[in-house]
Design a protein around this nucleic acid. Sequence first.
DNA 1: CTGCCATTTTACCGGC
DNA 2: GCCGGTAAAATGGCAG
Lengths: 89, 89, 89, 89
Amino acid sequence: MNKPTEIQGVSGTQLKLFVEKIERLEEEKSEVQENIKDVYAEAKSVGFDTKVMKQVVRLRKLKKEEYEEQEELLDIYKQALGMIPSESN
Amino acid sequence: MNKPTEIQGVSGTQLKLFVEKIERLEEEKSEVQENIKDVYAEAKSVGFDTKVMKQVVRLRKLKKEEYEEQEELLDIYKQALGMIPSESN
Amino acid sequence: MNKPTEIQGVSGTQLKLFVEKIERLEEEKSEVQENIKDVYAEAKSVGFDTKVMKQVVRLRKLKKEEYEEQEELLDIYKQALGMIPSESN
Amino acid sequence: MNKPTEIQGVSGTQLKLFVEKIERLEEEKSEVQENIKDVYAEAKSVGFDTKVMKQVVRLRKLKKEEYEEQEELLDIYKQALGMIPSESN
DNA sequence: CTGCCATTTTACCGGC
DNA sequence: GCCGGTAAAATGGCAG
């Protein structure tokens, strides 16, 4: 048999499933990335400066993260104060 | 009015739409990325070596790309030799 | 003294040596890059299509890389299967 | 003969020579690049911050270019004033 | 926490 | 001279 599905305790079949699933997900990711590119292209075509836009997006992301950190901290405080149940419950 | 929609010929409204669309797409992308991570984690949990898996995925991608480039190159050759019409025709 | 050689525990002299060495290497690199450009220019002058040539070069590189990755992957498999000692031994 | 050296007026032999020369040059370039990497690595190993170093290198390059532009301009003025002969002579 | 790898950004080069 | 695409550099994220 030249298509062994198990060698040294490694299931080729199972490995194949994992790899193919990953590849499908990476395909999806590429498509989304393409979409992002398209949006920038469209914005550019109506006169926006994509470089600046990218900076804007980055800044907003940073701010959002900051905000979320604060929210998270707030949750921790609330939990510590018994105002809300802890996640593990 | 503190929400001008046009400054220096730049439409804030339009820009906002673009930026928000990009942000939604990047959100999607992050989710897909998370899914990929999860698959690797699951594979690892049943005994696969993540490093090897990543290399397998990379290699397969490389092969696919090479194949596609071959095709592309072939087209260029054909065009160069006048065997097929160029794209602009 | 206006040429301190150590500030905040950082040796200016040593840093200078590193930076200058890097600059010399980057100079070399630029020269090689120039040479590459010249070869393309010469090829073009005798009728070759630069774009096609670049794709040929890229494809050949891709193949070489793929081959090398294959080898590398094979080693990893061998190691995983205990057929050869790991690098750290 | 399955190794034609000329198709549609394209000399395969000549093309091969060009491509191989380019590949040799790119090989050289890679080696130089490796050397640069090594220098950064060494600098890092003795405590320098490579990120900052890269910025330093970039700045110095900019300054050098600025300087050369000025020199060039100076030459143009000199030529205009008949102080030195023009390049085309 | 460090090194490695992928992604992203920047710079370059050729074509129009 | 500008724009598009391609290659290099820099940054950021992930695993170990």
